[in-house]
Design a protein around this nucleic acid. Structure first.
Length: 877
RNA sequence: GGGGUGUUAGCUCAGCUGGUUCAGAGCACCUGCCUUACAAGCAGGGGGUCACUGGUUCGAACCCAGUACGCCCCACCA
């Protein structure tokens, strides 16, 4: 059967993926005889589609899990999706809007119906896409953060925390997202530098006396909130404003009188030193208001429009009002000036809307009870962050963590299990029935009915379910002693983006400690962000993000996987370039062709093994062992790019360029059986170490190669263990390869065909002893003899060996050779000079370590002898 | 504003305790090759004052200080 010249992934990937599934290779069940190795996938948004970030993240996880599986561990990768409360709700709202339905016009139940329909339609697409990448998850264990069991866990945890006194409800200044119409947590706020305007407004002084100024100029970036002002504040030490003590000012346009107050908070050197105080719409002002006993005037609705309190501006959006009010102020001559200035504006991580600080009634989780333990876990490396530079970030965050606002004014999510009585009191319980029991207890009224209880309308923050993920996927809340959780928890590695180190990783650590008494994972591998070749973030609007599925279709999953991994050290951003994927494809093709070469050879059963082939086998076996040891070291430090490069070079340079060239029989000649068997074994081992990176290709070749009967699938073949290597032999072999390269160099320089066999004469046979066949074969040397250089031969010095290459008649140019040798001599003398200088430095000789000193002396001796050699060659010409 | 981190070849990055794995790898580039596994290839080759300045040391890409530029995280100056 003819094997095609190029590997075509499209025709094999689907087949092997199905075969793996059919065989249940990705399934895992607790097995006490084996060591567990577990990864829980960071659940992508249920309605999301695969992007390059997922590709990187999941490729890394698959490499880790596949290697663990081959190492004989009970490897489990749990997949799943996240309900992504605000993001999904926003999508559903948008979809309804297209259909002409407004969320406000439908009931919660109707909305949820639409939402579930949406989720059923688009949910899980992303998991199907991951299969194309080769992700070896146990799909039977796929979980969803809002499925009934996981919701139960969330409610249980809420009640538990409430009973422990860690959850409270209160009016606080929260970050309000007017687009999502919900509160969001501090971490979900992103500060963005934006050009802003600073307005200088005139606040008239009430009853100015004689020579007093008639107004005070106040700088603000938010003129739309002036009607909510309750005071103007000055620094108590500010001499410019002392006369205003006990006085009142008038809000421009509104003529409302407000007091002048004094507080250290105000900076004298910023703006005009006068601050308008708006407690309802600014956190600092709120605190200022508390200190001075000021009222709170709320003028902004949940959707960002102004309330009735705004008078003529009621009903308009805050940004519209900003412009309008500026115009009106100007018209009324109440505006001194407008300056441009740059400041950071808070925006919502999910919707991008500008955040309004807003007072509202929300649920909070205290962080104080958890922070110390969670900090300790990372600082002591109980949870190891990779790269470790993130430890500092984690520490800063944990030390300054504030209470977590866990309620969201949304419908898509887990509804807060708090039930209110008509008198405002409430009970917290996992179920309606339980709530009723509690409520009856609370009120002492045994006839209280369900319809007299009203459940809280809010849902919980998405992270309030995802922080339980490593436990809840094993039903560890439902049944804390079940076999799965006891076996798989704590998990081994978590692979995720640094952006959610606080949102998610830190909180999972807290949850693990709180409910399992131990951290949820041992290692956290933090990936970088995937950017384009110019370093820009991938984004839809830039159109610089390729569709991962198109890439897989064009180049194959293996090529994409290796392309992602070629240059992505942990914590570093990955500058994606299609060239990397092409490099991956080329590499796959190289391996494919190596297999084709082996497959194409005729076997001569009785032929003896050539000396070159025997040496090649001895050498490659050692290289292989060396590489496996290196790989294990790379993996131990999560240096996946380095690990890939190790196998890449092993395959391409060592196996293909050197080993296969050495064992290759003359054209048309058969190969001896022993060599072919050994070569097949080597290839088989190569496939095994490559499999985590390129699972499809290796599985394909594996089956074409038909290895041992007990190793039917590469996917579950054992990961090789390294044997000790003969370092001295490898060093000698390297020297022989240096000679080969030097000879080839001479050929290239002289324009001689590599097919023309030339005689080579070595001055001293010792250095190459035993390796002559290697040099002969690779350098295409006709005869390799020991003796003095014959006339007309080109001197070649390589690997400490002095040789001469006999050129064909007429191609020897004595003048050029002299020039070359002179240049070499000059360089070596310069080198010798620097060594001499060092050795004549008394302080160096006195202080340097003995082995360093010895090395320098050897350098000196070597240089001297090399110069002598070169001079002798020069004389001989 | 505070903290962290980085700057090594055209690009992306290694370089562990200062000294023979000290100046490396992959890609790109240049020169030859359509050689019967592979042109998605083969052979050979050329690229770097290790950001800058000073210091410590017999010796610095590596340690220290400062400067410049970059990135990241945190932060309530209207």
């Amino acid at each position: 059967m003819e094997i095609p010249k190029t590997y075509s992934p499209q025709s094999v990937e689907g087949h092997w993926y199905q075969a793996w599934l059919d065989r249940g290779f990705f399934r895992s069940r607790p097995n006490p005889a084996k060591e567990p190795y577990t990864i829980t996938m960071p659940p992508p948004n249920v309605t999301g589609v695969l992007h390059m970030g997922h590709m990187l993240n999941n490729t890394i996880q698959d490499v880790l899990i596949r290697r663990a599986r081959m190492q004989g561990k009970e490897a489990l990768w749990v997949p799943g999706t996240d309900h992504a409360s605000i993001a999904t709700e926003a999508k559903v709202v948008a979809m309804l809007k297209e259909q002409g339905i407004s969320k406000r016009d439908i009931t919660r139940e109707q909305f949820l119906e639409h939402a579930f329909a949406w989720k059923d339609k688009y949910g899980g697409i992303i998991l199907e896409q991951l299969k194309k990448l080769g992700a070896s998850c146990d799909w039977e264990r796929t979980r969803f953060t809002m499925e009934p069991k996981l919701t139960e866990a969330v409610l249980k945890v809420f009640v538990d925390l409430y009973q422990k006194g860690h959850i409270y409800r209160g009016i606080r200044m929260v970050n309000w997202d007017p687009e999502g119409r919900t509160a969001i947590a501090d971490d979900e706020v992103i500060a963005k530098e934006m050009p802003m305007k600073m307005f200088y407004l005139r606040y008239a002084v009430v009853d100015p006396k004689g020579d007093e100024a008639e107004y005070v100029t106040v700088a603000t970036s938010r003129p739309e909130t002036i009607m909510a002002d309750v005071a103007v504040c000055f620094n108590p030490a500010d001499d410019r404003y002392q006369w205003l003590r006990g006085r009142k000012l008038r809000i421009p346009l509104f003529d409302k009188e407000i007091p002048a107050i004094f507080d250290d908070y105000v900076a004298m050197d910023f703006g005009t030193g006068a601050l308008k105080v708006t407690p309802a719409h600014d956190l600092n002002d709120y605190e200022l208001g508390l200190r001075h006993g000021l009222p709170v005037v709320d003028v902004i609705h949940e959707d960002g429009t102004l309330t009735e309190a705004a008078g003529p501006y009621a009903g308009l959006d805050r940004f519209v009002v900003r412009k309008q009010i500026a115009k009106d102020l100007k018209a009324a001559d109440l505006l001194d000036k407008i300056d441009d200035y740059q400041t950071s504006v808070s925006t919502s991580e999910r919707t991008g809307a500008v955040i309004e600080p807003k007072l509202s009634l929300q649920w909070f989780l205290k962080m104080e009870p958890f922070k110390e333990r969670a900090l300790e876990a990372v600082m002591s490396d109980e949870v190891k962050l990779n790269p470790p530079k993130f430890k500092n970030m984690y520490r800063t965050w944990m030390e300054n963590v504030r209470d977590w606002c866990i309620s969201r004014q949304l419908w898509w999510g887990q509804r807060i299990p708090a039930y209110y009585l008509e008198d405002g009191r409430f009970v917290v319980a996992e179920t309606d029935t339980q709530a009723l029991v509690e409520a009856r207890k609370l009120t002492g009224n045994p006839t209280l009915q369900m319809d007299q209880l009203r459940q809280d309308d809010d849902v919980l923050d998405t992270w309030f379910s995802s922080w339980l993920w490593p436990i809840s996927v094993f039903d560890g809340f439902d049944d804390p002693e079940n076999a799965d959780i006891k076996y798989y928890y704590p998990t081994n590695d978590l692979v995720t983006a640094p952006e959610i180190l606080f949102f998610w990783v830190a909180r999972m650590i807290i949850a693990g400690q709180e409910w399992r008494g131990s951290v949820p994972f041992k290692n956290v591998y933090l990936t970088g962000i995937v950017r384009d070749a110019q370093g820009r973030k991938m984004s839809k609007s830039l159109g610089n993000s390729p569709d991962p599925l198109d890439l897989i279709a064009e180049f194959g999953a293996d090529a994409v996987r290796t392309g992602m991994l070629f240059s992505s050290p942990a914590g570093n951003d990955l500058l994606y370039d299609q060239k990397l994927v092409e490099q991956g494809r080329n590499f796959n093709n190289k391996l494919w062709n190596a297999f084709r070469l082996l497959r194409g050879w005729e076997v001569a059963p009785d032929a003896p093994q050539s000396a070159a082939a025997r040496l090649a086998g001895e050498w490659f076996g050692a290289k292989l062992n060396q590489a496996i040891a290196q790989l294990d070291a790379d993996f131990a430090e999560y240096r996946l790019s380095d690990a890939l490069m190790t196998v890449y070079k092993l395959t391409w340079d060592d196996f293909c360029s050197t080993y296969l060239e050495l064992i290759k029989p003359p054209y048309g000649a058969p190969i001896d059986a022993a060599t072919l068997a050994e070569a097949s074994d080597f290839l088989e081992t190569l496939l095994r170490v490559l499999h985590p990176f390129t699972p499809f290709l290796t599985e394909e070749i594996w089956h074409l190669l038909k290895p041992r009967a007990d190793r039917e699938y590469c996917c579950v073949a054992p990961w090789p263990t390294p044997a000790p290597t003969d370092a001295a032999f490898l060093t000698r072999f390297d020297r022989a390869l240096d000679v080969v390269q030097a000879v080839r160099n001479q050929r290239a320089a002289k324009g001689l065909s590599p097919n023309l066999a030339l005689p080579l004469v070595a001055k001293d046979g010792a250095a190459l002893a035993g390796l002559e066949p290697v040099v002969q074969k690779l350098a295409n040397v006709s005869t390799l003899t020991v003796g003095d250089a014959p006339a007309g031969a080109v001197p070649v010095v390589a690997g400490g060996t002095e040789l001469a290459l006999v050129l064909p008649e007429g191609s020897f140019d004595a003048e050029a050779e002299r020039a070359r040798l002179n240049k070499d001599i000059e360089y070596t003398r310069g080198f010798l000079g620097s060594v001499d200088k060092k050795l004549s430095n008394e302080k160096f000789v006195a202080n340097a370590k003995p082995e360093i000193l010895e090395a320098e002396r050897k350098k000196q001796a070597d240089a001297l002898s090399k110069i002598a050699q070169l001079e002798a060659q020069l004389a001989a010409l």
